[in-house]
Amino acid sequence: MAKAHVYGDNIDTDRIIPGKYTKTLDLSMLAAHVMEDVDPAFASRFQEGDLIVAGDNFGCGSSREQAPLALKTAQVSLVIARFFARIFFRNAINIGLPVLEVPHHSIQMGDEISFNLAEGKVVNHTRQEVYQATPLPPVMLNIMQEGGLVPYLKKYKDFIL
């Protein structure tokens, strides 16, 4: 089980990881600054394995893959949004950050959550509720289950729709 950190709509990639930190291959530096412009207390509140729950259009803005990488390196176990901005959504799955689009839920800050990615099922233990994620197209589900596009392409050599 993991704790939910709940934020609002339209959280852009500039706030997930500011551009000034993105020019690096040192992922720990990304993780150190993740979400600081959304919630200055994020670093002190967040425990490894916790999850982020956002509203509409999480990850809008830039194509920087450093945004999902920063979240993954900080050990975010899952990001839930009503829907994601398209580049962020692809990037997250490509680098192996679990993401689910859940249109209806009533998760609040601090709720205890567990989930099953393959089934797209999210359980809210605090409120005793179960939510269903929007199903992924098979190609995306496959990439996610392989742990990202690098292992996927190594295995399949090509895209299988």
Binding site: R90, N94, F159
Partner: peptide, 20 residues
Amino acid sequence: CGVGSTDLAAVMLTGKIWLK
């Protein structure tokens, strides 16, 4: 289209991309 680095790496390697 704009894509992230890993999607682009796949384009560099295969010359293709999957999309809707």
